[in-house]
Computed example of a mutant assay.
Amino acid sequence: MSTPTTRRSLREQAALSGAPAMAPAPAAPRRRGGVGRMLGDLALWIAAVAGVVCIVLVILAMTANITLIMFRTGSMSPTIPAGSVAVVQRVEAAQVQVGDVVTVDREGELPVTHRVTAIEPGASDAERVITMRGDANATDDPFPYPVTSVRTVLFSIPGIASVIVGMGDPWVLGGLTAGATVLVIWAFWPRSGSAASRRQDGVV
Protein backbone atom coordinates (compact mmCIF):
# COMPACT_ATOMS: atom_id res chain seq x y z
CA MET A 1 0.00 0.00 0.00
CA SER A 2 1.54 3.35 -1.08
CA THR A 3 1.91 6.24 1.36
CA PRO A 4 -0.12 9.32 0.34
CA THR A 5 2.00 12.21 -0.85
CA THR A 6 1.80 15.34 1.29
CA ARG A 7 3.50 18.74 1.18
CA ARG A 8 5.65 17.75 4.17
CA SER A 9 6.83 14.59 2.48
CA LEU A 10 7.64 16.54 -0.69
CA ARG A 11 9.71 19.03 1.33
CA GLU A 12 11.57 16.17 3.08
CA GLN A 13 12.28 14.50 -0.26
CA ALA A 14 13.51 17.79 -1.68
CA ALA A 15 15.79 18.32 1.31
CA LEU A 16 17.29 14.80 0.96
CA SER A 17 17.83 15.18 -2.77
CA GLY A 18 19.25 18.71 -2.48
CA ALA A 19 16.55 20.22 -4.71
CA PRO A 20 15.15 23.58 -3.63
CA ALA A 21 11.80 23.40 -1.89
CA MET A 22 8.80 24.72 -3.76
CA ALA A 23 7.81 28.20 -2.59
CA PRO A 24 4.17 28.55 -1.64
CA ALA A 25 2.05 30.41 -4.17
CA PRO A 26 1.52 34.05 -3.19
CA ALA A 27 -1.92 34.75 -1.80
CA ALA A 28 -4.23 36.64 -4.12
CA PRO A 29 -4.48 40.33 -3.15
CA ARG A 30 -7.69 41.22 -1.44
CA ARG A 31 -10.07 43.48 -3.23
CA ARG A 32 -10.54 46.75 -1.47
CA GLY A 33 -13.38 49.16 -1.43
CA GLY A 34 -16.30 47.71 0.47
CA VAL A 35 -19.40 49.83 0.99
CA GLY A 36 -17.67 53.08 0.03
CA ARG A 37 -16.68 51.66 -3.32
CA MET A 38 -20.22 50.41 -3.98
CA LEU A 39 -21.74 53.78 -3.10
CA GLY A 40 -19.23 55.57 -5.33
CA ASP A 41 -20.02 53.26 -8.25
CA LEU A 42 -23.74 53.79 -7.69
CA ALA A 43 -23.28 57.57 -7.71
CA LEU A 44 -21.28 57.33 -10.93
CA TRP A 45 -24.03 55.27 -12.57
CA ILE A 46 -26.68 57.77 -11.48
CA ALA A 47 -24.62 60.64 -12.87
CA ALA A 48 -24.09 58.74 -16.12
CA VAL A 49 -27.82 58.03 -16.49
CA ALA A 50 -28.66 61.68 -15.78
CA GLY A 51 -26.17 62.75 -18.42
CA VAL A 52 -27.68 60.37 -20.97
CA VAL A 53 -31.18 61.69 -20.18
CA CYS A 54 -30.01 65.27 -20.74
CA ILE A 55 -28.42 64.33 -24.06
CA VAL A 56 -31.58 62.53 -25.18
CA LEU A 57 -33.74 65.54 -24.24
CA VAL A 58 -31.50 67.87 -26.24
CA ILE A 59 -31.66 65.57 -29.27
CA LEU A 60 -35.46 65.28 -29.01
CA ALA A 61 -35.82 69.05 -28.67
CA MET A 62 -33.77 69.61 -31.84
CA THR A 63 -35.20 66.80 -33.98
CA ALA A 64 -38.77 66.18 -32.78
CA ASN A 65 -39.74 69.54 -31.19
CA ILE A 66 -40.16 67.83 -27.83
CA THR A 67 -39.65 69.97 -24.72
CA LEU A 68 -40.74 70.20 -21.08
CA ILE A 69 -43.26 72.49 -19.40
CA MET A 70 -44.00 72.95 -15.70
CA PHE A 71 -47.43 73.37 -14.12
CA ARG A 72 -47.47 76.08 -11.47
CA THR A 73 -51.24 76.03 -10.91
CA GLY A 74 -53.82 73.31 -10.46
CA SER A 75 -56.17 74.28 -13.30
CA MET A 76 -55.62 70.85 -14.89
CA SER A 77 -56.10 68.90 -11.64
CA PRO A 78 -56.60 66.07 -10.99
CA THR A 79 -55.29 64.99 -14.40
CA ILE A 80 -52.14 67.10 -14.10
CA PRO A 81 -51.73 68.53 -10.58
CA ALA A 82 -49.69 71.60 -9.73
CA GLY A 83 -45.98 70.88 -9.52
CA SER A 84 -46.04 68.44 -12.42
CA VAL A 85 -43.74 68.44 -15.43
CA ALA A 86 -45.16 67.51 -18.83
CA VAL A 87 -43.41 66.36 -21.98
CA VAL A 88 -44.88 68.25 -24.93
CA GLN A 89 -44.40 68.16 -28.69
CA ARG A 90 -45.12 71.00 -31.09
CA VAL A 91 -47.57 69.99 -33.83
CA GLU A 92 -49.57 71.79 -36.49
CA ALA A 93 -53.00 73.05 -35.48
CA ALA A 94 -54.63 70.79 -38.07
CA GLN A 95 -53.54 67.75 -36.03
CA VAL A 96 -55.30 68.87 -32.85
CA GLN A 97 -58.44 67.01 -31.80
CA VAL A 98 -61.13 67.69 -29.21
CA GLY A 99 -60.01 66.20 -25.91
CA ASP A 100 -56.30 66.86 -26.43
CA VAL A 101 -54.39 68.70 -23.72
CA VAL A 102 -52.35 71.40 -25.45
CA THR A 103 -50.20 74.39 -24.60
CA VAL A 104 -50.96 77.63 -26.42
CA ASP A 105 -48.34 80.38 -26.54
CA ARG A 106 -49.74 83.85 -25.95
CA GLU A 107 -47.91 87.01 -26.97
CA GLY A 108 -47.01 89.10 -23.93
CA GLU A 109 -48.52 86.52 -21.54
CA LEU A 110 -47.61 83.16 -20.07
CA PRO A 111 -48.60 80.08 -22.09
CA VAL A 112 -51.79 78.30 -21.09
CA THR A 113 -52.20 74.51 -20.99
CA HIS A 114 -55.79 73.27 -21.02
CA ARG A 115 -57.98 70.64 -22.69
CA VAL A 116 -59.47 71.36 -26.11
CA THR A 117 -63.28 71.47 -26.04
CA ALA A 118 -64.04 72.80 -29.54
CA ILE A 119 -62.25 73.46 -32.84
CA GLU A 120 -63.30 75.86 -35.59
CA PRO A 121 -61.67 76.76 -38.94
CA GLY A 122 -59.37 79.77 -38.87
CA ALA A 123 -58.50 82.56 -41.28
CA SER A 124 -56.23 80.26 -43.30
CA ASP A 125 -55.91 76.57 -44.08
CA ALA A 126 -53.19 76.22 -41.45
CA GLU A 127 -55.06 78.11 -38.73
CA ARG A 128 -57.58 76.76 -36.24
CA VAL A 129 -59.59 78.54 -33.56
CA ILE A 130 -59.69 76.33 -30.49
CA THR A 131 -61.68 76.63 -27.29
CA MET A 132 -60.12 75.18 -24.14
CA ARG A 133 -60.98 74.50 -20.52
CA GLY A 134 -58.95 73.39 -17.52
CA ASP A 135 -60.10 70.09 -16.02
CA ALA A 136 -60.52 71.82 -12.66
CA ASN A 137 -62.56 74.70 -14.14
CA ALA A 138 -66.35 74.77 -14.48
CA THR A 139 -66.38 76.89 -17.66
CA ASP A 140 -64.34 77.34 -20.83
CA ASP A 141 -61.55 79.88 -21.04
CA PRO A 142 -62.87 83.43 -21.66
CA PHE A 143 -61.62 83.66 -25.25
CA PRO A 144 -60.88 81.15 -28.01
CA TYR A 145 -57.33 80.89 -29.33
CA PRO A 146 -56.44 81.28 -33.03
CA VAL A 147 -53.37 79.09 -33.57
CA THR A 148 -51.32 77.61 -36.39
CA SER A 149 -49.39 75.30 -34.07
CA VAL A 150 -49.62 74.14 -30.46
CA ARG A 151 -47.64 72.01 -28.05
CA THR A 152 -49.57 68.84 -27.28
CA VAL A 153 -48.98 67.06 -23.97
CA LEU A 154 -47.60 63.54 -24.44
CA PHE A 155 -47.42 62.62 -20.75
CA SER A 156 -46.75 64.24 -17.38
CA ILE A 157 -44.84 63.40 -14.20
CA PRO A 158 -46.28 64.83 -10.96
CA GLY A 159 -44.23 66.43 -8.20
CA ILE A 160 -40.89 67.03 -9.94
CA ALA A 161 -41.27 70.66 -11.02
CA SER A 162 -39.66 71.92 -7.81
CA VAL A 163 -36.71 69.59 -8.38
CA ILE A 164 -36.13 70.94 -11.88
CA VAL A 165 -36.47 74.53 -10.68
CA GLY A 166 -33.96 73.81 -7.92
CA MET A 167 -31.54 72.32 -10.45
CA GLY A 168 -31.41 75.70 -12.16
CA ASP A 169 -30.12 77.47 -9.03
CA PRO A 170 -26.46 78.55 -9.52
CA TRP A 171 -25.44 77.19 -6.11
CA VAL A 172 -27.05 73.82 -6.86
CA LEU A 173 -25.40 73.67 -10.29
CA GLY A 174 -22.05 74.54 -8.72
CA GLY A 175 -22.48 71.84 -6.09
CA LEU A 176 -23.43 69.23 -8.67
CA THR A 177 -20.44 70.16 -10.83
CA ALA A 178 -18.08 69.93 -7.85
CA GLY A 179 -19.61 66.62 -6.78
CA ALA A 180 -19.27 65.15 -10.27
CA THR A 181 -15.63 66.28 -10.40
CA VAL A 182 -14.89 64.62 -7.07
CA LEU A 183 -16.56 61.40 -8.21
CA VAL A 184 -14.53 61.26 -11.43
CA ILE A 185 -11.25 61.93 -9.59
CA TRP A 186 -12.13 59.33 -6.96
CA ALA A 187 -13.04 56.74 -9.60
CA PHE A 188 -9.73 57.08 -11.46
CA TRP A 189 -7.45 57.68 -8.46
CA PRO A 190 -4.89 54.82 -8.06
CA ARG A 191 -5.96 52.40 -5.35
CA SER A 192 -3.57 51.72 -2.45
CA GLY A 193 -1.90 48.35 -2.74
CA SER A 194 -2.08 48.24 -6.52
CA ALA A 195 1.66 48.84 -6.90
CA ALA A 196 2.45 46.15 -4.35
CA SER A 197 0.20 43.66 -6.10
CA ARG A 198 1.92 44.43 -9.41
CA ARG A 199 5.31 43.79 -7.84
CA GLN A 200 4.06 40.47 -6.46
CA ASP A 201 2.89 39.50 -9.94
CA GLY A 202 6.27 40.41 -11.41
CA VAL A 203 4.96 43.42 -13.33
CA VAL A 204 7.01 46.62 -13.19
Rank of each mutant, 00 (worst) to 15 (best):
A94R: 14
R128D: 00
L42W: 13
L183E: 08
V116H: 02
I66A: 03
G18W: 05
R191C: 02
G34H: 03
F143P: 00
T152A: 07
T73W: 07
G83W: 01
L57V: 03
A94V: 11
V112S: 04
V87F: 15
P121M: 11
P146V: 11
V129Y: 02
V204N: 12
P78R: 10
D135G: 08
A48P: 00
F188W: 13
V56W: 04
M70D: 06
L110N: 11
V91K: 08
A161S: 15
R72A: 11
R106G: 03
V56M: 08
G40D: 10
P26Q: 04
R32M: 01
L39I: 15
G34F: 00
I55T: 11
R90C: 08
A15W: 08
S194Q: 12
A161Y: 02
I66D: 00
G36H: 07
I69D: 06
L176E: 14
M38I: 12
V58L: 13
D201W: 10
L44M: 14
P24S: 14
S162F: 13
D135F: 06
R128Q: 12
A126V: 14
R151H: 10
V203K: 08
G202H: 04
F71T: 02
E120C: 02
V56E: 04
R8M: 07
R198Y: 06
R72L: 12
S194V: 13
V49K: 06
T103V: 11
G168D: 12
N137F: 07
M1T: 10
R72K: 08
T152D: 05
V116G: 02
I55Y: 03
I66P: 00
A47I: 07
I69K: 02
T177L: 15
G159D: 02
V49I: 15
S124H: 11
P4M: 04
G122S: 09
T79N: 10
S192E: 13
P81C: 11
V153F: 04
D41P: 00
G193M: 05
V184D: 01
V182G: 11
A14S: 09
G166C: 03
I80S: 07
L68D: 05
L176A: 15
V129D: 04
V147F: 08
G175L: 15
S194D: 15
V116Y: 01
L57H: 09
G122W: 08
A123I: 12
